[in-house]
Structure formats: structure tokens, C-alpha cells
Design a protein around this nucleic acid. Structure first.
Length: 259
DNA sequence: CCCTATGTTCCCAA
DNA sequence: CTTGGGAACATAGG
């Protein structure tokens, strides 16, 4: 479930708790998860986010990588000795315990020996140049929403924020990527940064079960304008929000003003 | 029973 | 090679 703002929220909360801390013990409670050797005794450096992925660099140079996929959650526990149901992985520190909870068991855990190369060409909060996006998208005839959500191109944007960003700039999710003008890419870059940063400030979007590291709901669901708003009036033009299927995903937009 | 789900990957067809 | 569609992964909830 988590997209960039949710993973960033976890990352910031983790930095306060486990940067520089030693892993006392781990427990893997799901045979689907990769068995990771020799984590005990290692110290975690500053946790980092890469798209929707969390990277925990260790003092021996290895990098523990966690992707939460659809239903993965991280929960910080200090006084609950019994893990919640669907707990798949536990890391014990002297100050508390980090639990990975994942009902659908899609989350992935892995270790690499060195820093992984960036997976995406663009990052909405760092290198997000309208001109480079315009050049890159210039020959793509796929829908702009599919382009925004493709993690090979752009890091961290998923279904909720793709819908919100496109609505903000009044562009249809079905528009061909190559149709966007440089001016439209400029608007997109600004809208993406605004929306994602605001969502980070709100600690993410809780429409069903997203929770932060301490089990708290986010607040950005109170600012959504199209996602899960089928049948409601558009805040820009009063048109009725529709839901269609695009790239296999429920897609919310205003057919009256998103052209 | 039906459908849906904030993600990714793989296979197949056009 | 590019794109789109569907299934798969596994589970909960409406």
C-alpha cells in the first residue's frame, strides 16, 4: 500500500529510533522471506528511502532492503512481547523492536553487498527536471498515468498520488505521454512536489489500513480530491468524478476538467 | 458468491 | 522493441 510519502514517513521515524543502533537479534517468521545471515551484532547506519523501498545500510557495508508492496507495515514495539498476527520479521534493538506485519505476504526483504544503483531515472523530490521528463516522455505513447506509476521511470508514485497529481493539473490520466507540452511537464513537476511533500507532512494517506511506525493513521486522506471520490463533485469544476480501469488499476478523475 | 485493494512481475498477444 | 491485458502472488473486507 505505501507509496513515496508513506515510505518516507516510516524512514524519518526510523531514523530517530535506529540510526546507529546495534541489531541484537532477528527472527524470520515467514518461509517466503529470504533468510538473511549474520545480521546480529551489526549496526544500522542512517535509513534511506529509494522510491518505495527502504534501505538499511550496515556497518559491514551490506545493505538490507525492504519493499512493503501492498500490505506490508512496519510497527515499532516497546512493551508488547507477543507479535501481532501476520508478523513476518522482527529486528530487536536495545531500545525496542521493529516488526514487519504483512497479511498478504507480498513484502520482500533482501541483502546486497554494496549500495544499490538507483532504479528509477527520475525522483520527484530530487532530480525532476521538466525538460528531461519532456525529452524522455517524448516518444512514449502510453497513458501519462502509466508513465508516472512506472518505477523504471519515476521513483515512488503509485495509484493514489498519480490520480491526485493529474487532477491537480487538469490532465486526463489517458493522455499520451508524448502529448504533454513542456509547459504541462512544468506544471506536473510542481504539482507532484507539492502533493508529495504535503502528504509527507501529513504522514501519508490512510484510506484503509496504512499506519505509521507507531500505528497512527495519516492525515492526507482529508486532502484527497479525486481518489476514492467516485460520484462526488470535482472541486475544480463541479463535474462528477468517475472511476475507470487503466493499466489494471482503479483510476479516479474528473472527465469534465481533466483533458 | 461477487468485487475490491496505496504493488510488482511474468507471460502472451497485437 | 513497445504497449496493453490478464494472471499470479495471498488475504481481508464490503
Amino acid at each position: 500500500m505505501p507509496e513515496l510519502p508513506e515510505v518516507e514517513t516510516l524512514c524519518r521515524q526510523l531514523r530517530e529510533l535506529i540510526a546507529g543502533k546495534k541489531i541484537l537479534a532477528i527472527r524470520i517468521l515467514d518461509s517466503k522471506l529470504e533468510n538473511i545471515e549474520n545480521l546480529e551484532g551489526r549496526t544500522i547506519r542512517l535509513p534511506c528511502r529509494a522510491g518505495k523501498c527502504l534501505h538499511f545500510r550496515l556497518d559491514d557495508g551490506r545493505v538490507l532492503m525492504l519493499h512493503l508492496r501492498m500490505t506490508g507495515r512496519l510497527l515499532w514495539q516497546t512493551d508488547q512481547p507477543v507479535p501481532a498476527s501476520h508478523t513476518r520479521f522482527i529486528m530487536q534493538f536495545d531500545c525496542g523492536r521493529l516488526d514487519l506485519i504483512d497479511p498478504r505476504r507480498f513484502a520482500t526483504l533482501g541483502v546486497q553487498n554494496e549500495n544499490p544503483a538507483p532504479k528509477a531515472e527520475f525522483d520527484p523530490l530530487n532530480n525532476f527536471s521538466p525538460r528531461l521528463l519532456w525529452e524522455r516522455g517524448g516518444k512514449k505513447i502510453l497513458p501519462i498515468k502509466s508513465f508516472l506509476m512506472d518505477q523504471r521511470y519515476i521513483a515512488g508514485i503509485g495509484n493514489i498520488y498519480a490520480c491526485e497529481i493529474l487532477h491537480e493539473i487538469s490532465i486526463s490520466p489517458r493522455r499520451k505521454t508524448s502529448d504533454l507540452s513542456l509547459a504541462e511537464w512544468r506544471k506536473l513537476v510542481i504539482a507532484a512536489r507539492d502533493i508529495l511533500n504535503k502528504a509527507i507532512t501529513c504522514r501519508g494517506t490512510t484510506v484503509s489500513d496504512w499506519r505509521d511506525l507507531f500505528g497512527q493513521k495519516g492525515e492526507y486522506q482529508n486532502h484527497l480530491r479525486v481518489y476514492a471520490k467516485e460520484g462526488e463533485p470535482c472541486c475544480h469544476c463541479g463535474g462528477i468524478i468517475e472511476r475507470v480501469k487503466l493499466s489494471g488499476r482503479g483510476t479516479y478523475f474528473c472527465p469534465a476538467c481533466q483533458l
